[in-house]
């Protein structure tokens, strides 16, 4: 990718390639499961037959090497934050992060008093989509994937105009 990424202006080849790549990436996001607490139950429910993530081309991967999106579902404790960041860096680029639930957005119920909770996963890694709720319903997580797809569709390999 680095052969062409960021080297040429938005000409017809680049933008056409963008469309193809973004269509491919957005239509088949492979998220890494990062179930940490109660929100993980809703995430599992989203992947199971009733809501069925598979029909969006979304397949949960158990390893960061095969994933391009990380769903942080649950309470990120101080000890886990270290591991979370390491796993994030093990994911190949381009990569996206969905923060699912109040806990991973801001610390949630542990906002003020939690001595062991990181107040938002965005203090550790960059986040693309926030899904509010405690826990969010599976529909909300599906919506996050659709939002992520829109976001991916806007990405480009063209040289950034200053």
């Amino acid at each position: 990718m680095s052969l062409i990424e960021g080297r040429y202006g938005p000409n017809i080849v680049i933008t056409s390639l963008d469309k193809v790549f973004n269509w491919g990436r957005g239509s088949s996001v492979w998220p890494m499961t990062f179930g940490l607490a109660c929100c993980a139950i809703e995430m599992m429910a989203t992947a199971a037959s009733r809501f069925d993530l598979d029909r969006y081309g979304i397949f949960m991967r158990p390893t960061p090497r095969q994933a391009d999106c990380m769903i942080v579902a649950g309470t990120v404790s101080v000890k886990m934050a270290e591991r979370l960041r390491r796993l994030y860096h093990q994911m190949p680029e381009p990569r996206w992060v969905i923060a699912m639930g109040s806990c991973s957005i801001s610390g949630g119920p542990y906002w003020e008093g939690g001595y062991h909770v990181v107040k938002g996963v965005d203090l550790i890694i960059p986040v693309d989509v926030y899904v509010p709720g405690c826990p969010p319903r599976p529909e909300a997580l599906l919506d996050a994937f659709l939002t992520l797809k829109e976001k991916i569709a806007k990405e480009t390999m063209a040289k950034k105009l200053a």
């Binding site: 000890k79 003020e112 203090l123 550790i124």
Partner: peptide, 17 residues
Amino acid sequence: DYPIAKRQPLIELRKSE
């Protein structure tokens, strides 16, 4: 008597809380 606002992060944070 543990101060509830006390934070003890293990790794450096990207921005301040």
